[in-house]
Simulated assay, not measured.
Amino acid sequence: MDDVIGDMGPSFLGSRLKRLAERMQAGAMSTIADAGLPLQPGHMAVLAALRGGAMTIGQLARVIGISQPGITRSVGQLAKLGIIADVHAADQRTRCVELTTAGHAAAERAATDLWPRIGMAAEEVIANLSGPFMAQLAAIERALDEASIAERAARAEPGGLRLREYEDALARDFHDINVQWITSMFSLERTDREVLENPRARILEPGGAILFVEAPGLGVVGTCALQKTGASSFELTKMGVRESARGLKAGEFLLDATIARAKAMGADPLYLLTNQKCAAAIHLYEKLGFVHDAGIMAQFGARYERCDVAMLYAGDRQKEA
């Protein structure tokens, strides 16, 4: 049978992309239904965005990249389902929403099982693409003819976090992951910009390291760096994990791997600087062997205006204490 849209080539590119999106979303819809969630594919981005806390309609539109009317429509549907609720906003003309208890439960379930499965299915579909873009579109369509997103997602098995080394193609991930968490609580400082915009010159060339954690179906979800600050001293810095990976223990996996790398590099001392607002991160640091240290604060704490917590790695003995 002829494929009118496909045969028309780039002239019908918009229609072809729309058709492809409908096929992808149909598979995602089936997977969402199988998971027992009363949601639609269009709701997923709102759910993911609100995992980080309450947001206004305008903020949601900006971070998701669609129109405010589209966001308002999704928010209304999710509110009827009891997934989100309005919260007080300083400007009464602005609508602000957050996840309800049911919404948080749905988001956690989606993040730890649903999104990885759909992501793994999509990765499988595009795994062997090469050549011109139109040929790649045809290859995706053939792959979906062989097995839909829903079929591929059903057989996917999320898990298996993987460590990745720095490469220049990951510089944007290093930058964006850290900018996201820093600006959510603080302001970017000059030292932040210097490191995030020049990771090779500021971290790698002086003898440091940058690691990433990748989750099946979600891609790179976290990063952490070791910055050399003396003959053998290293600062564990610029550690961040995307909201999409919350619940996967990606942060603990990454921190453990970074500590192991620091030991292999002969780090002495290994320390970090943070802020008491980062309570969850501090708890994780304590769990994996860091202790609060006044000497580290006195020697290195002035590097960041936001620093009011300094910690020293005390080793396995601290973890066992």
Rank of each mutant, 00 (worst) to 15 (best):
G58W: 08
T100A: 02
T94M: 09
I210Q: 00
L312M: 06
P69N: 07
I71K: 09
E235N: 09
D173I: 04
A264F: 05
R261V: 06
S30L: 12
Y285R: 07
M29S: 15
F174M: 04
L218D: 00
E205P: 04
I118Y: 03
L17N: 01
W181N: 12
F234M: 10
E235G: 06
A45V: 05
E252V: 02
I32S: 04
R142E: 14
I64G: 08
L37C: 04
M311V: 13
K228L: 01
Q299E: 13
E214D: 14
G315K: 03
C224P: 00
A147K: 13
G247N: 03
G131Y: 07
E235F: 04
A35S: 08
F253I: 03
A171Y: 00
A281H: 03
V46A: 12
I66M: 13
I126W: 02
Q59E: 12
T274I: 06
V179S: 06
T237G: 07
F12K: 08
A209D: 15
W181V: 14
S11H: 13
D192T: 07
H283V: 05
A105L: 09
A35E: 13
I140M: 14
H175I: 11
C224Y: 01
D91F: 00
E157V: 13
Q77W: 15
A215Q: 08
